[in-house]
């Protein structure tokens, strides 16, 4: 049993890296996802197409491939142009990892945010505009605050997904939960305990989060039916 505990504790050492990357990425994802959602709803055809292409490309490719392109492909390209670029000079491999997770998540978040905004009755926008608010002010003061309540559960689900997705970052040199387990496995050859430990380390992050989301959704549903 001790070997399983050890596997778990070693995997847990990766939790700070996994959580830090996920947290920064979800913030990038929310901000850029909002921008994408707003672009896809503007009158400008160019912005609409750009947002659509971005979302299709990101959703149509595995995050591991995106991470490899960002972490190794881009430095290779820049070096072939004679630019001496190394991620190590810009904060280490965790930087491309966070960028990829954030901008990957943005593509998914944008759809969530867009549907949240569209769920708001269009009378709300009309009422805000008829008070003399600009479109942007109406979005900021009236539409987005209401949309956030609708979006929140999906947003938290995206965070859970992101935590699990960061497991691919071991391949680009980030020592997160899975990588900790792999490293220990290759030195101890305790393969089963190593990966069970990794699985448990993810579960202590994701399961409580999912429970909180479920609780919030139930609370909202009760509120809805009471109103």
């Amino acid at each position: 049993m001790g070997v399983y505990l050890k596997g778990f504790l070693i995997a847990c050492k990766g939790i700070p890296a996994t959580v830090a990357v996920s947290l920064i990425a979800i913030v990038i994802g929310a901000a850029f996802g909002l921008l994408l959602a707003l672009c896809s709803q503007t009158k400008s055809k160019i912005l609409q197409v750009l947002a659509k292409v971005y979302i299709d490309v990101v959703r149509g490719t595995p995050m591991l491939v995106q991470a490899l392109i960002m972490a190794y492909g881009i430095p290779w390209l820049l070096q072939s142009w004679g630019v001496g670029f190394k991620w190590d000079n810009f904060g280490g491999m965790v930087v491309p990892a966070v960028i990829v997770c954030g901008f990957n998540s943005a593509a998914y978040m944008s759809e969530v945010i867009r549907s949240g905004i569209q769920a708001i009755d269009k009378g709300q926008m009309e009422a805000a505009r008829s008070l003399g608010m600009s479109h942007g002010m109406a979005m900021r003061l009236v539409i987005i605050p209401q949309a956030i309540r609708i979006i929140l559960p999906a947003f938290a689900n995206e965070f859970v997904t992101l935590i699990k997705e960061t497991s691919v970052l071991g391949y680009v040199g980030v020592v997160e939960i899975l990588r900790r387990g792999q490293l220990w496995n290759s030195s101890s050859f305790e393969t089963f305990p190593a990966y069970i430990g990794v699985a448990l380390a993810y579960m202590i992050l994701t399961i409580p989060l999912s429970k909180i989301i479920n609780g919030y959704e139930r609370k909202m549903a009760r509120k809805e039916s009471a109103a």
Partner: peptide
């Protein structure tokens, strides 16, 4: 936007802002 401030509009479906109190609905504009 400035012309609309001269014209108050009342809708069939009220369209109050549900995330704001009654008082805030009046002061937000």
């Amino acid at each position: 936007d400035s012309m609309r401030t001269k014209m108050g509009m009342v809708f069939q479906s009220f369209n109050l802002f549900p995330h704001k109190s009654v008082l805030d609905n009046l002061t937000i504009g």
